[in-house]
Design a protein around this nucleic acid. Structure first.
Lengths: 339, 339
DNA sequence: CTGTTAGCGCATTCAA
DNA sequence: TTGAATGCGCTAACAG
């Protein structure tokens, strides 16, 4: 006589002729089992195709077996890779990911920061793109283990993992400057955003190492979007005689670099002959564009894995303080720079 | 005296001075409650910040409250949008998404088809990119409600929702052909893949409506990747006198169109002056490219929403048979075509 | 209309 | 070393 639905611990125990608690102990290795019984239990599990019911287990163990991810949007491949990295790490612990997408501008960040605790999670990874530290996040860290990924937030004592933006920017900046061009310009990212400041710092180091005076290098602010790259480049290249417009452009990300390239082309300038361009991120379009964009590649997957690892350790009781991990980046040489 | 952890039904009942089942009935609207009691319960819930424990509820209700998604990879924005659409629909039913990424080639499709039933889900949405119907999927549909999204699979009786690929291709094809060019060529997608066949059929209709003879139009097969677009275009444009090479190119997707554009440029041909190009999908790079690519936009979000809706209805017991829904697409006119 | 009670499947005491 | 019994928080009879 078949019992309805999937097999339970009780079914296995009956089949093997042992007590429920013995099967449970066998599965969780929580106490020694006589080899003979172990064999019978193993066979019964196989025969009934038994799989523990995670809901019952978690209910009993008073845990969520889930970690929350607050992220702008998964349709951005970079964030999707971070999520994949997290997933990769936590799936080994039989944990699942509870997603909260706050929208491209972070509009629903407060909303989800309030909601996630109620959804019952064991910890939270925050990928923010606002550059601020909202009150809602402050309250979150009082109640849950929290780890910051990709974008740093000031003023809170939680672990962080991201890319070494400064060093990456410095390296690609020096590559661009090695062309010997002397009319450099920078398109920087949103004010107050950690990654933008770090990349700008890296570009400044590169400029300094090539003996540029700060006052000679125009710095235009964008907001990481393609359109803002168009606007920034317009102010740099349109209405200026070509002999005065920049001949080397350091952009804080690929989207803005690509937007700038459109304007540069419209201005009748050639890339890289008239203008050398570099970006940051290595988005897919960087390689498809003509000319293909020299940029800096980050390992979003590794950021996700590392963030999950830090969070799991925090959940396990370890005090990581405000540990900061900055993962290395790699420069991808393509066709917008000169060898 | 505080109880440990979050408030439970019992806490609320005690606080409001009613029975546990009354609170449950109030929350689930499962029977009428005296207004007076309702107020007391509502206040108690608010005061204790009570949130029902979903794990306990689902355990009791013998359901997973989760639907499985088998998808190639979330780092592809198109699939990510489908997932967002599903998420949007099922979150209203308090259900969560259990993700299974099979990899860009679908390598782990069998693996996850076996694993998902064990993870306990109430139903499954399959987004396949193989074009075949693996045995594992056949077995899946015997045990679970299954809905196919985006890519159709032959030989199984399950609901399907995707885009109207044929009509979209026909429309954009006719736009390209309206230029009056007479040396047309097609780059088609993977053999046996439903979307590829549908788009090819649409392009054929467009060609027929402009009185092209089938034998006059070279059709080169690609596999939807950028590189395959490069290879296909190489066979079409390189080593051929420009007066004989195609002057209008219909590609089955944007990635291949973009790859082809690189080759066309290398061949010294201008777009759209010498060659008109169209694609399909409207990926972000299509708009950033120079010239920007005329293509067909699909609503991946709507595909996800609709698939979730069909699945929820199937889970609820409705028999949808092999209902097929093909959502409309829109042509996005850009700079690789002539007005 | 409301309260009491019996499990959902599991981990974990406590006896044996 | 093993088994019986308890309850995690909840829904759904059932009795009042």
């Amino acid at each position: 006589m078949m019992s309805r639905g999937p097999a339970t611990l009780r079914d296995v125990a009956g089949h093997a002729g042992v007590a429920i608690s013995t099967v449970s102990a066998y599965i969780n290795q929580t106490r020694p089992i006589t080899p003979e019984l172990a064999v019978r239990i193993r066979d019964a599990i196989r025969e009934l195709d038994f799989v523990p019911n995670a809901q019952a287990r978690n209910l009993r163990m008073r845990r969520a077996a889930s970690i929350g991810l607050i992220v702008p949007e998964l349709s951005n491949p970079f964030f999707a890779f971070i999520a994949e990295g997290i997933e990769d790490r936590i799936s080994r612990e039989q944990m699942t990911l509870t997603l909260s997408q706050t929208g491209p501008t972070g509009a629903r960040e407060d909303f989800y920061a309030e909601l996630l605790p109620r959804a019952r999670v064991d910890g939270i990874i925050v990928v923010s793109n606002t550059g601020k530290t909202p009150m809602s996040i402050m309250r979150l860290i009082e109640r849950f283990p929290v780890v910051l990924a990709d974008e740093y937030m000031p003023g809170i004592r939680v672990p962080f993992v991201g890319s070494d933006n400064r060093r990456g920017a410095r390296t690609v900046g020096e590559l661009a400057l090695s062309s010997g061009r002397r009319r450099a310009a920078v398109i920087t990212g949103p004010e107050g955003l950690w990654s933008a400041e770090a990349r700008l710092a890296g570009y400044r180091e590169a400029l300094a190492s090539y003996s540029f005076a700060e006052s000679d290098v125009p710095i235009v602010r964008g907001d990481y979007t393609f359109d803002s790259g168009v606007r920034a480049a317009t102010s740099l290249f349109i209405g200026t005689p070509a002999t005065n417009s920049p001949d080397v452009l350091l952009a804080a990300n690929d989207l803005m670099a690509l937007g700038a390239m459109r304007v540069i082309r419209q201005a009748g300038l050639r890339i890289p002959e008239d203008v050398v361009v570099v970006g940051f991120d290595d988005i897919p379009a960087a390689d498809m564009m003509h000319p293909s964009l020299t940029t800096v590649s980050q390992s979003a997957f590794a950021i996700g894995q590392t963030a999950a690892d830090l969070l799991l350790r925090t959940i396990a009781g370890e005090d990581l303080g405000d540990e900061r991990i900055e993962l290395p980046t790699t420069v991808v040489r393509r066709s917008t720079t000169i060898d």
